[in-house]
């Protein structure tokens, strides 16, 4: 069986096609230009910066009451590992939320907060040579949180 579609229906479909297609493309362009990030709306900045041999990283260090230190290793899966991107905003977070977040990271790393006196957020600058070997050039404590 075959159907022929009335012209009025075709006209309506053409209007819908334009609204949906041009509208979606326009929204994608506007979001990209504005830098908005509200998934699934994104500015599509994938690898859009220039890398050099110098990098800066942030790492949580758990400090025991006896002064010994151990890195807080967040599980490598995507859901948890990507929470480390919140490190950059930790220093500017209100104290009670800082504490909540740090306790959650300790729990994710299987470290009992009761065994930790302080957690330090350490900023480490590294320089990588052409052989791929990384050298620490500077290390500073950005913020200290008592869990």
């Amino acid at each position: 069986m075959s159907t022929s579609v009335p012209a009025t229906s075709d006209d309506a479909q053409r209007r819908l096609a334009r609204r949906v297609t041009y509208g979606t493309v326009a929204v994608l362009l506007l979001v990209a230009l504005s830098g908005l990030e509200a998934w699934p709306l994104t500015s599509f900045r994938l690898f859009s910066t220039v890398r050099t041999g110098s990098t800066v990283g942030l790492q949580l260090m758990a400090v025991a009451p006896d002064g010994s230190r151990q890195p807080v290793r967040i599980p490598a899966d995507q859901v948890m590992q990507t929470t480390t991107h919140q490190f950059a905003r930790l220093a500017h977070t209100r104290p009670e939320l800082q504490r909540e977040k740090v306790r959650a990271w300790l729990a994710a790393a299987d470290i009992d907060p009761a065994t930790v006196a302080q957690v330090e957020l350490v900023r480490t600058s590294r320089s990588t040579d052409a052989a791929g070997t990384s050298h620490v050039t500077a290390s500073t404590v950005v913020v200290t949180v008592t869990p």
Binding site: T3, S4, V5, S9, Q13, R14, A17, T24, V25, L28
Partner: peptide, 20 residues
């Protein structure tokens, strides 16, 4: 079956969005 505007534009819109 047959041909119609309503069956033509959506796959092309998907291509346009993908290209964008």
């Amino acid at each position: 079956t047959g041909w119609a505007v309503r069956w033509g534009w959506p796959p092309r819109a998907a291509l346009a969005v993908m290209g964008t």
